[in-house]
């Protein structure tokens, strides 16, 4: 059986909020190392991969591999009943028909209990190899969100160009064009506000802004986001959590 207690329900709330507009139904794969999820969007252009390590739970117990097939809309409805600071306990049997969720406030004088019906989801898993990317950019997640939102007003796609000292986001559309250039800089007082670039070779790739705007719904998970780019490889957009991550992979546009 699965029994996993999360100190802050807000973590799961934010994870689900981050991915629910990209995928509707998905398996939460539970085993002794933690809870993971991999799913593609309907058009197979983007893929989300989420991991919550057992270290993020206390206690965590899962003796066998259990796949929890969940409709994320249903899970969102139930998680709305949890405060961010509530303690959340997930429970499921070995071959479960439902997932049990208990929310307790920090004073422990209120507890709410919900069960969500599970579904059988036949999901294909893709093997994602370790990749040495040509460029890795770390920037504030709020900054990335603003750039994607602003450029999406002008165009369907954005070109991301990483060079040694800067990263440029540019687009062109019917009403005109726009670009945002971020220079590598270190903010010693507020490290989360820094922009860092690790470059093996310069790279320039074009991506759909619709998906990037969607990925930015994960901004609440982390103050920074990491973009990893290589020519003719999907973009990796990673939000790190205390004991896990949400990663998005986005296939590039071609013929640019």
């Amino acid at each position: 059986m699965l029994e996993a207690r999360l100190e802050q329900a807000g973590v799961l709330k934010k994870v689900v909020e981050a991915i629910k507009d990209l995928v509707q139904d998905c398996n939460f794969d539970c085993n002794d190392s933690g809870i993971a999820l991999q799913a593609m969007d309907n058009s197979h252009v983007a893929l989300v991969s989420m991991s919550l390590s057992h270290e993020g739970f206390s206690p965590y117990r899962c003796d066998r591999n259990i796949a929890l097939g969940i409709n994320l809309n249903s899970l969102t409805k139930v998680l709305r009943a949890a405060q961010n600071e509530d303690i959340l306990t997930l429970k499921a049997a070995d071959s479960p028909d439902s997932l049990n969720l208990v929310f307790e406030n920090t004073e422990r004088d209120r507890s709410s209990e919900y069960d969500i019906k599970l579904m059988d989801i036949d999901q294909e898993h893709l093997g994602i190899p370790d990749t040495d990317y040509s460029a890795t950019v770390v920037l504030p997640s709020a900054e990335f969100q603003r750039i994607c939102r602003d450029l999406s007003q002008l165009s369907e796609s954005v070109t991301i160009e990483a060079s040694k000292s800067s990263v440029k986001f540019s687009c062109s559309g019917d009403i005109g064009n726009g670009s945002v250039n971020l220079r590598q800089h270190q903010d010693l007082e507020k490290p989360d506000q820094s922009t860092s670039i690790e470059l093996v070779e310069p790279v320039s790739l074009t991506f759909s802004l619709k998906y990037l705007v969607n990925f930015c719904k994960a901004s609440a998970l982390s103050p920074t986001v990491k973009l990893s780019l290589s020519t003719d490889v999907p973009l990796l957009v990673e939000y790190k959590m205390e004991a896990g991550y949400v990663r998005f992979y986005l296939a590039p546009k071609i013929g640019d």
Binding site: I128, A251, I254
Partner: peptide
Amino acid sequence: RIPQKQINDYYKKK
């Protein structure tokens, strides 16, 4: 319009 590739073109089924 710029053509869009799919994730399956890069990563294969496990």
